[in-house]
Write a protein that binds this DNA or RNA. Sequence first.
DNA 1: GGCGATGGTTGCGTAAAATGCAATAATCGC
DNA 2: GCGATTATTGCATTTTACGCAACCATCGCC
Lengths: 299, 299
Amino acid sequence: MKIPIDGVQAFVHVAELGSFNRAAEHLFITQTALTRRIQSLEAFVGLRLLDRTTRSTALSPMGRDFLPLARRIVDDLVHGLDRLRTSSRLGVGDVKIATLQSVAFRQLPLALRRYARKYPENRVQLLERSGALVTEAVHQGQAEFGIHIQQDPHPDLVEDMLMRDPFVLVCSRSHPAAKLRKMTWANLEGIDLITLGGSSGNRRIVETQLTKAGLNLRGRFVVESTPSAIALARENVGAAILPAAMNATTVTTGLIEVPLVEPVLYRTIALVCRRNETLTPAATALYAIVKTQLSRVRR
Amino acid sequence: MKIPIDGVQAFVHVAELGSFNRAAEHLFITQTALTRRIQSLEAFVGLRLLDRTTRSTALSPMGRDFLPLARRIVDDLVHGLDRLRTSSRLGVGDVKIATLQSVAFRQLPLALRRYARKYPENRVQLLERSGALVTEAVHQGQAEFGIHIQQDPHPDLVEDMLMRDPFVLVCSRSHPAAKLRKMTWANLEGIDLITLGGSSGNRRIVETQLTKAGLNLRGRFVVESTPSAIALARENVGAAILPAAMNATTVTTGLIEVPLVEPVLYRTIALVCRRNETLTPAATALYAIVKTQLSRVRR
DNA sequence: GGCGATGGTTGCGTAAAATGCAATAATCGC
DNA sequence: GCGATTATTGCATTTTACGCAACCATCGCC
C-alpha cells in the first residue's frame, strides 16, 4: 500500500495550473506520466478528484476539499527536504559549541572570523565554560562539540587533540624572575603566585604539580579567569602560572614569559564531541576550521 | 528527482520506535527494505538523519530538527488520503442541494428519511428556492445538485427527468367546480383563481397557458407558496391551480382535486447538476435515493 | 576472552512500478 | 466538417523497490 505522493503532487499542480500539459511541463515529465499519476491517486482513494473533459480540467467537489491539505503537504515536503539539502550542501545552520573561556577570547576569534567570512548566514553561539563544564555541556547535548582540556576519556565522547600547551610563568619586567631563561617548579618556592582557581581545569593540573614539587602553597592570589591573572601580574603583585597559549598578552602588555621546566607541564586542548553522532553540516564546517586553525597556533 | 516519501515515513517510524526492526514491522516490510529507504532519503538530502551503530539508533541533530515536520507531513498525508478513501467507500460527507420549496415539504422528506437511515453520519442542507433560483444555485455551485422544473437546457448543466406533474384545480367541496370530473382551461372563465406568483416556476407555466386560453386574467389571489394557496382554497375564496403532486393536501384537508384538461398541462420536475462534474459520494448516494423515490411517486 | 545473540548493511536476482512514444479519442473554434 | 488542442491507452523499456541470504559490528554473558 504505497503512498501515492507523486499523484498528490501532480494533483496540486494540475489544480493550480488548470491543465495537464502545463502541469507536466512544470514537473518535467510527459503528460502521459502525469495522467497516470492522477489515475493512480484516484484509484488509491477511490474517487475522482479532477473532472476533466478533453478540453478543460476542473476540480471535483472532493478535489476542492482536498486541495488545501494536499497543497500544504506537498509544500512542506518539498521545502523541508530542500532545506535539508541546501544545509548539507552549504553548511547552513546555527551552531552551538562549548569552549573554555580562555580559548574563547584568545584563539577562537580568528577561527570564528574565518568561519563567518565563509558562511555569512550562519550563527554561532559560544557557551563559555570552565573545566569539566565544557565536557558536560557537550555530553548533555547543549553544545554540538566542545573545546576542553583533555581528560579521562568518557565512553560516550570522542576527543580530538588540538595542541599541547605548556605552562609558563608570566610576570612583569621588574619581577625577580623576569631575567631567568627558565624556571623549575621547585624554584617557585618563595615567589608570590597568581593561580587560577574556581572550577578551572588548569587549576587541577597546576595544583597537582605544585604539590608534587613539594610546594603545598596554593597561589597567593587565586583568580577565576586568565584576564584577571594577567592584570594582577601587570601590577607586579606576583607571578602568574598560565598556559603559554595565552602569551599574546606578553606582547601587548609588556609582560615577561618564563618557561617552567622540570618537568614541562602541559595542558592538552582537545575538541570533544559525542560518539556516534553526526554533526550538522554547519558544525562540521566550524569543527574543521577550528581544528586547522588552533592546531597551527604557534607553541 | 523523485520525492522520497517512503524514506520520510520510514524515518519517522524509526525515530519514534528507536529501532529499524520494529519500524520495519510496523510498515510491513523487511528490515532490509527499511534500511534502503533511509539510505535513499539520506542520499537525497545529502546528510545523515539517523546515527546508528550496530546496537542502537538515535537521531542526529539534523534529524531532530527535521522530525516534527516529517511527522506532520506523514500524518497529514496518511490521514488525508484515508479520509478520502473512507468517504469514497461509505459515501460519507455533507451534501448541499437546492430544491423547489414545494418538493422540499412534500416529496423530499421521505427520501431524506431513507437517506438518513442509510447514512446516519451525513448531514444534508436544503436550499429552498423557487423557480429559476434552484437552477442558479446549482449553476453557481452553491448546491451539488438541484430539483427544479425542467426548462431550456443550459449548456453547463445536465438534467435528469424525475416526473411529469399535471396541473389540477384544487377547491373546497362546496366550490361550484368540485362536482366536475374534469375542467378545461377555457372553462375557468369567471372562476376566482388562486395562483402562485413571485418567482415561482409554476407561475410562468400557468400564466402562459391562461393567456393561450384567452383568459388574460391573472389569478384573483396570487400567493407565493403552495401552503398558502391551499389554505386559501380551504377557505373557499377561490380555486387554486396547483401541481397534482401536491395532492396529499386533498386527503388531509378535505379539498377536491379536479384535473385540468385541453390541454393537460405538466410541469416537469428534474434533477439538475453541473455537466462534467463528479458529485461527492454523499451527493451521489442522495441523488440515487431521490431519483428512485421521486420517480415512483404516484401520479 | 571467546561466543552467541542482536541489529544494521550489502550483493544480487526478481518483481513491480513508472515512464515515454506512438496511436487514439474527444472536443473546441473556425 | 476540419484542424488544433487536450486527455487517454497499448506497448516496450527503463527504473526502482523488494526480499533473501550472507555479512559485519557490537553487546552481554559465561
